[in-house]
Design a protein around this nucleic acid. Structure first.
Length: 642
DNA sequence: GTAGGGTTAG
């Protein structure tokens, strides 16, 4: 009798727990679990997976460990379903070591447990362990299923390796997993994100009209939006509607990613209102993406309004709003929200930490940076690839190359991003030799540099004033690596030429570019003209700059400075009049730095910081040293000239 | 019991 009563009671509790999970009330399962323990009701092989799921979703390691202990004490300790759910729980909490220990000790492992372990290594960025584990799995006679294939395709997509994606595609067919619509959908988005649009369309066409789902269309739109084809994405969306498909949250979400930069606010707003029309404004993922969209387009108020209006905020909602402030350099507000997130019972996770790390780097807040670093270590996120990369970048930006290097050297696995980050760190500090040594070492290890890596190398050359090395790598990129230079690479070279006083060559270089020059490149030339007091080329650059951005004050001021530096006061007043006539106002640029938890603001040419005259004395000293360093770099390069 | 949105380099 007692057993029957326990059975029906457990079922009742399980239903309650399941319902709470479904409604995204993630704290409830744990409360219910402890209540039933108090009442003496024994949880069963369904209770544990549900509660484990909640712990995983909450990224709460402490609770996860408690649940694990309960499982060990229960009769279900060797149940493979229960064990797999624990595995997933640890993976979600970033405790890859705990997960692997559990996995290693499992007596019976099926394809689901392998899949969880694979996704765990994938999430940590341990690519070679994913590949190793996969071959181990096949050697052990466990057949891959569609979820394995989907996971591997996503890995290929993550590392942007189209060859990897297509080999997994073939493998999927060889292994005998029928290429079902879910694999197809993943392949569409992955091929597109790796830049292989033809293959993406081929997979889409191959699915067959009867099997196509909304998700297939979503994947195609996502891929299209990812590579920045906004017009085509909207076209695909129209086509989807005309074929009678009803958009879901995912569709709106993918369209929203089209509006990820300043100036795209109107586009974002219209998609938002369209989302409301098709009834997706209650969808949590849409709401969270809306926060990000408004944040990225610069409308902080709207982002905050949406966040404040969400009743049941999720971890992702908190992350989105914290990211909003951190990305804009408002670290104080981001940290305040971080505390509120903790107070609300949501544990800040890896993504929260990433936002705080990058925000700290952005404004040079070393103290907050160090604090979040310790938080990351405490919560065992530190061995994650993305987190390590972010930490390296943060320390480099805060001026601590020693710490940046220490993290770099002790990393579990390094990606092209890790190498690029350390190179750009050295570039930032003007350490050309270190930057180039790391670049060469990276090549020796067989990694292929991409356009960002080359940009960092060029910036290192630029900051060190080494024109010869600059040309060397500019051509290496184009000829050996077949990467056509982008506007940033051209800008960097033009800047380098200009700073070295080769203004005529710089202008010719810009005129012969394969891309249309932008405001940045003319601005770089203009400031080079300021350094070398060249009115003729300065005026040429200023004219081009004003043709692109007529309402920006900087070119007038720069030109006025050039005139002033050679005593042409007529020119100075001409510029002032032009500014007045064109109703242009110039806001002085500012820089921000955090010291002892206090944020200090500095204005261009301003000497009004209240702290100390010492600051300005030090700055003057630094300027002198910089001048000397620049001169010696110039001499150094002269020695190498034929 | 696995798969999804949000994240790192300029």
């Amino acid at each position: 009798m007692a057993r029957i009563s326990n059975y029906s009671t457990v079922t009742l509790w399980n239903t309650k727990i399941k319902q709470a999970l479904k409604q995204n009330q993630l704290h409830k399962p744990l409360i219910l679990f402890s209540q039933m323990k108090q009442l003496g009701i024994q949880p069963d092989n369904l209770t544990f997976p549900f509660v484990a799921k909640a712990c995983g979703e909450l990224r709460n390691l402490n609770n996860s460990e408690i649940i694990h202990t309960h499982v060990v004490k229960s009769p279900y300790r060797s149940d493979k379903y229960v064990q797999t759910s624990l595995l997933d729980m640890y993976v979600k909490c970033c405790s890859i070591d705990c997960a692997y220990k559990l996995f290693d000790e499992m007596s019976e492992r099926d394809v689901a447990s392998w899949n969880v372990m694979l996704s765990g290594f994938c999430q940590m960025g341990f690519w070679s362990r994913v590949v190793g584990l996969f071959s181990e799995m096949r050697l052990g006679g466990v057949e891959a299923d569609s979820i394995t294939i989907i996971g591997l395709v996503q890995l290929g997509c993550l590392v942007r390796d189209v060859r990897f994606v297509s080999s997994v595609h073939c493998l999927g067919m060889v292994v005998g997993v029928e290429v079902d619509v879910k694999i197809g959908n993943t392949l569409i988005a992955s091929y597109a994100k790796c830049g292989d649009w033809d293959s993406a369309e081929k997979v889409f066409d191959g699915i067959g009209f009867d099997c196509l789902t909304v998700v297939s269309w979503n994947s195609l739109i996502a891929g299209c939006a990812y590579v920045g084809k906004s017009v085509e994405s909207i076209g695909l969306y129209r086509m989807m509607l005309s074929h009678g498909y009803r958009p879901d949250g995912g569709t709106i979400l993918n369209l929203l990613t089209l509006c990820d930069q300043d100036g795209a606010l109107n586009c974002g707003k219209s998609i938002h209102s369209h989302g409301i029309k098709v009834g997706c404004n209650k969808d949590m993922s849409v709401l969270n993406t809306l926060i990000s969209m408004y944040s990225k387009t610069g409308d902080v108020r709207s982002a905050r309004n949406i966040f404040d209006a969400i009743k049941e905020k999720t971890r992702v909602s908190w992350n989105a709003i914290i990211g909003c402030y951190a990305e804009r350099g408002d670290l104080d507000e981001a940290m305040a929200l971080f505390r509120s997130m903790e107070a609300s019972g949501h544990k800040p996770d890896l993504v929260t930490a990433l936002y705080i790390i990058s925000g700290s780097g952005k404004i040079g807040a070393l103290e907050t940076g160090r604090w979040i670093h310790s938080y990351v270590v405490l919560n065992k996120f530190h061995s994650n690839l993305v987190v390590s990369n972010a930490l390296i970048g943060m320390y480099a930006k805060c001026g601590c190359m020693t710490l940046a290097r220490e993290i770099f050297n002790t990393m579990h696995e390094k990606s092209i991003v890790s190498w690029t980050t350390i190179i750009s760190g050295y570039a930032l500090h003007g350490e050309l030799k270190e930057a180039l040594d790391h670049f060469e070492l990276m090549l020796e290890l067989g990694l292929t540099p991409n356009h960002v890596t080359f940009l960092s190398v060029l910036q290192a050359c630029n900051h060190a004033g080494n024109l010869n090395k600059g040309w060397e790598y500019f051509y290496l990129m184009a000829i050996v690596y077949n990467l056509s230079p982008e506007i940033e690479h051209y800008s960097c070279m033009a800047d380098l030429l200009g700073r070295r006083g080769k203004l005529k060559e710089a202008v010719e270089f810009v005129q012969n570019m394969r891309i249309r020059p932008d405001a940045g490149i003319w601005g770089a030339l203009l400031s080079a003209c300021k350094i070398h007091r060249n009115i003729e080329i300065g005026l040429y650059a200023a004219e081009r700059l004003l043709a692109i951005e007529p309402q920006v004050g900087a070119p007038y001021v720069e030109m006025a400075n050039i005139y002033a530096s050679v005593g042409r006061w007529d020119g100075v007043s001409k510029m002032r009049t032009m500014m007045k006539n064109n109703q242009v106002t110039k806001y002085p640029g500012q820089s921000v730095v955090q010291v002892n938890g206090k944020t200090h603001t500095f204005t261009v040419e301003g000497r009004c910081h209240t702290a100390d005259v010492l600051i300005y004395e030090t700055l003057d000293g630094l300027n002198l040293q910089l001048q000397e360093k620049f001169d010696s770099a110039f001499i150094e390069e002269m020695v190498f000239l034929p």
